[in-house]
Design a protein around this nucleic acid. Structure first.
Lengths: 198, 198
DNA sequence: ACCTTTCGGTCAACAGTGTTGACACGCGGG
DNA sequence: CCCGCGTGTCAACACTGTTGACCGAAAGGT
């Protein structure tokens, strides 16, 4: 079924994929703004005009080459107890280079409304949607969104600001400290001023 | 003493300040990448070349027009008890528009090493330096840096991603929920695996 | 008073950007 | 066989940040 239907089509999809690979590499290494369409084309051995013709614009090429599907379902669907710690572990352990460079690239390119919306829906799909209905106690959705905010903060510190003290800290310490802080929002709040009404 | 030393010098500083004002307005409204030097010059009634001559480059103009001095000393120097809540209150209350737009602009422009370094030192001066030596218990500096990360996360959610559910939530709820989560890192950790040695 | 230097401001140009349209060429289907 | 369509190429557009030469008038010296 995936046979070569024609030499032309094969050539087309081959160069398209070459452009995509070059774009992914360069965007991750240099960021969105510092990477030019001409540079991508040169690295892929193609013409700059082809890049636009195949992907519509530099912006859409960027979106297409930045995968943001959820890879944290096994955590967000797991038991609520200790979820904070497992979330931090998963973030810092599973394909961290990819997670970090994508976060860095997309956050810096979030001038663009398309990029920003993609980032927002990615965070919602990955964390808020699976987490919010599971949280017990008042303000479940708000708390889930604040968990996502905390994750953003950790990613900022590591991937954008590059805080060496955090990067070089032991994984165990980060997991316990930041994980327990996240857990505060996962567990039902104890403050009596937070009524059960909305 | 601050008399007009000459008509030329007065004119020079006047146009320089006009350029600075226009730049600050446009950078905050449209972001760094979307604002052109020619647009700033037009708004200030000056020549694009003058913008570069006075400020060196668009990047340095951006840095000069983005004030990042600390405005949270009264919180970070206050009592440790309830510091998390007061931090969130201060962030969301005192000149929030300015705080948010500056955070958004600088984070998106952090492709530039100068901007990134400025952002890092600003966070350190505002939160980590005053907070770290005051925290009791193990890993004081790491915990202070993680507090700063949490602040980044809140700013991301509000200023960059524009999470409506968080923006529209009542200040009291945010203060209690996120503030208490931050407080987890301010208070000494209880986990016995975190020894007192580094 | 004049002459010279200094300096704010203007203009044109440079190399580079994303994007668009017209054009060439060779494989595919009639 | 030939026509058409699609892959690829080329040149151009309007725009970007930045640079250097130039102009004119104010400042300083004699």
């Amino acid at each position: 079924m995936s046979e070569v239907v024609s030499a032309r089509a094969a050539s087309a999809s081959a160069t398209r994929e070459a452009i995509g690979r070059a774009a992914r590499r360069l965007f991750n290494r240099q960021g969105y703004a510092a990477t030019s369409v001409r540079q991508i084309a040169a690295e892929a051995g193609a013409d700059p005009a082809l890049v636009i013709r195949y992907f519509g614009s530099k912006e859409r090429l960027f979106l297409e080459t930045m995968p943001v599907e959820g890879r944290f379902d096994h955590v967000t669907h797991g038991p609520l107890e200790g979820l904070g710690r497992r979330l931090v572990t998963s973030l810092l352990t599973e394909a961290p280079e990819l997670t970090f460079s994508i976060w860095r690239s997309m956050l810096r390119a979030s001038d663009s409304d398309l990029v920003r919306e993609r980032l927002v829906t990615a965070m919602e799909q990955m964390f808020i949607v699976p987490l919010a209905p599971r949280l017990v106690g008042p303000h479940a959705e708000l708390r889930a969104r604040l968990v996502a905010a905390q994750i953003s903060g950790l990613l900022d510190a590591v991937a954008v600001l590059g805080d060496a003290r955090i990067t070089e800290a032991s994984l165990d310490q980060l997991v316990v400290l930041y994980g327990d802080s996240i857990q505060t929002l996962v567990d039902p709040p104890i403050d009596p001023t937070l009524d059960e009404q909305n």
